[in-house]
Simulated assay, not measured.
Amino acid sequence: MQVSARGDYAVRAAVSLASTHPTTVSAQSLADGEGLPHKFLEAVLADLRRGGVVTSVRGADGGYRLARDPGEISVGAVLRAVDGPLAGVRGQRPEEVTYDGASAHLPDLWIAVRAAVRNVLDEVTLAQVATGRLPARVRRLVGSEGAWEPR
């Protein structure tokens, strides 16, 4: 799985909002706090608003805040709001891909990869990331042999 710049910025902004929940934070403050380009972040926040992850407040004290408690919003939900499905093959969902010959069973592998990604990203909430209290299963994955190797 590859996390796009939009996805990375979205998760960073959402985690930042989780750390200040339920306070409303301006896009400029979010951009400054996370070192993100303001204009690009505005577009990402619009995607998060359309996806029901954040709400926006107009006016002098306006800005953004999470639409729900940070313990109810998964990292997977944030990524889907800006990037769509979590795993794809050549722009298609794994169950839509078919192959002939020796590769005929490859879609099963792609579906398993999607399930594995979902099992992590849908289990971890913004609150857990913001506090550093990742689920034990995820912490074990982080500490597993080879997890930090760039291959």
Rank of each mutant, 00 (worst) to 15 (best):
M1D: 12
Q2N: 14
Q2L: 11
V3Y: 00
R6L: 11
R6G: 05
G7D: 02
G7W: 01
D8L: 14
D8V: 13
A10T: 01
A13Y: 06
A13L: 07
V15D: 02
L17K: 13
S19D: 09
T20W: 02
P22L: 01
T23W: 12
T23M: 14
T23V: 14
T24Q: 06
V25G: 04
V25E: 14
A27E: 06
Q28M: 08
Q28G: 12
S29W: 08
S29L: 14
L30Q: 00
D32G: 07
D32H: 01
G35C: 09
L36V: 07
H38S: 08
K39E: 10
F40L: 10
F40I: 12
L41S: 03
L41A: 07
E42P: 02
A43C: 11
A43H: 12
V44F: 03
V44W: 01
V44K: 06
V44M: 06
L45M: 08
L45H: 02
G51K: 12
G51N: 13
G51R: 07
G51H: 10
T55R: 13
S56P: 09
V57C: 12
V57I: 14
V57H: 14
A60L: 13
D61S: 15
D61G: 15
G62M: 07
G63F: 05
Y64T: 00
L66K: 10
L66M: 07
A67L: 08
D69H: 15
P70F: 11
P70R: 12
E72W: 11
E72A: 15
E72F: 11
I73K: 04
V75P: 05
V75G: 05
A77Q: 15
V78M: 09
V78P: 07
V78W: 06
L79S: 01
R80A: 04
A81V: 01
V82K: 12
V82Q: 08
D83C: 05
G84E: 11
P85Q: 11
P85G: 04
L86E: 11
L86H: 13
A87L: 10
A87C: 07
G88I: 00
V89C: 06
Q92S: 13
P94G: 00
P94M: 02
E96A: 12
E96I: 00
V97W: 05
V97R: 10
Y99P: 08
Y99N: 03
D100N: 07
A102G: 06
S103H: 13
L109T: 10
I111S: 11
A112P: 01
A112C: 06
V113T: 12
R114I: 00
A115S: 15
A116T: 08
V117M: 03
V117N: 06
R118E: 15
N119D: 15
V120E: 05
V120A: 03
L121T: 02
D122E: 13
V124T: 03
V124P: 01
L126C: 04
L126Y: 08
L126A: 03
L126K: 05
L126T: 07
A127F: 03
V129A: 01
V129P: 00
V129I: 08
A130F: 05
A130D: 02
G132P: 04
G132Q: 09
R133D: 13
R133T: 09
R133P: 00
R133C: 10
P135R: 10
A136T: 12
R139D: 11
R140E: 12
L141T: 06
L141E: 04
S144L: 14
E145V: 13
A147H: 11
A147R: 02
A147F: 13
W148G: 14
E149K: 06
